[in-house]
Simulated assay, not measured.
Amino acid sequence: MQRHEAGGSTANATAIDLRLRLTAGVLLAAHLLVVGWLTLSPLDLPWAAASNLTPLAGIRADLALGPLEAARRIGEGLALLAPLGVLVPLVSGRLWMSRLAEWSSLVRTTAAGTLVSLSIEMLQSGVPGRVVDVDAVLLNTLGVLIAHAAVVPALRARLRRSHTAYQGDTPRIPRVGLGPWTDVLSAVQREY
């Protein structure tokens, strides 16, 4: 736990935390708007493929297209919601956590990514030209998990270091000399 000395460093750390959380919240909202626009806008297609409700069938089909096309399609699925893995924990603003709380953060963030992905897939079922794909949910969730595991622990450690590096000016305490009663006490001790 971080200790703040008098001198306004608590207010400084709180202001930094608030700015970071607000920035992360704005970026999260902007990202979700872009994702919604990309995934829920109608497509003008003469025909659409059937829905994929068999796990990993779409990934196998992508792999059959060749390594470059498979890497592009799988990479798109992983990258679509990956920023949630970083932005959701930043919005919570907790820098100091136990190991158990860090694992809990990973689970909560992954669950949030899964719910967002499921919501997108369910909403796509009513959009012309879009189809439901269970592999998209798997790839999106895996992308959130990878982004959180790769970035958040190092980012939290860096933010903790930057918060503890400056805790305000060091208080200066003037050197205290001997009190006026020391002469009296030393004289009393000599008498005995």
Rank of each mutant, 00 (worst) to 15 (best):
A147L: 09
E191H: 13
R60V: 02
P89R: 12
G126E: 01
A57P: 01
L63V: 07
T114Q: 00
H31S: 13
T14N: 02
S119I: 04
L81C: 08
A15N: 11
L90Q: 08
V152H: 02
P67R: 14
A157Y: 03
P128L: 14
A48P: 00
L142D: 00
E5I: 09
V151Y: 01
S98I: 00
V88C: 07
P180G: 03
G177M: 03
G143P: 03
E191V: 12
E76Y: 08
R94I: 08
L33I: 13
A50P: 05
E5F: 07
A157R: 12
L27W: 01
A111M: 13
V188L: 15
V151A: 15
D17T: 14
W37E: 03
S125H: 08
D169W: 06
L100A: 11
L28K: 09
E5K: 11
G129V: 07
H31C: 12
L115E: 01
G75Q: 04
L38S: 10
A57D: 06
T170R: 15
L185A: 13
G143R: 04
A150C: 13
R60A: 15
T14S: 05
L185R: 10
V86S: 01
T114V: 14
W37H: 14
G113I: 12
D169T: 14
W181V: 08
V26T: 15
S41K: 10
T141A: 13
G8C: 09
V107T: 15
D169L: 09
T114S: 07
L20E: 06
E69Q: 09
A111Y: 03
T54A: 13
L45K: 11
D183S: 11
A154H: 10
A136T: 10
R3W: 04
T110F: 00
P67E: 08
L45R: 12
R3N: 04
L115V: 11
L87I: 11
P128M: 13
V151R: 02
M1G: 12
L68M: 08
G168W: 05
P174Q: 07
R19D: 00
P83Q: 07
T141V: 13
L45A: 11
T164K: 10
L18W: 11
L159K: 06
G85F: 05
E69A: 14
A154L: 15
L115S: 04
P153E: 13
I146W: 06
Y166V: 04
L20G: 12
A149K: 05
E102D: 09
L115W: 01
S98L: 03
A24V: 13
P83A: 10
G168I: 09
G129T: 06
L32D: 04
T182S: 10
L27M: 11
G77R: 02
G75H: 05
D183E: 06
T39A: 07
R3K: 10
E5Y: 05
G143C: 10
R99N: 08
I120F: 02
E5R: 15
G93P: 04
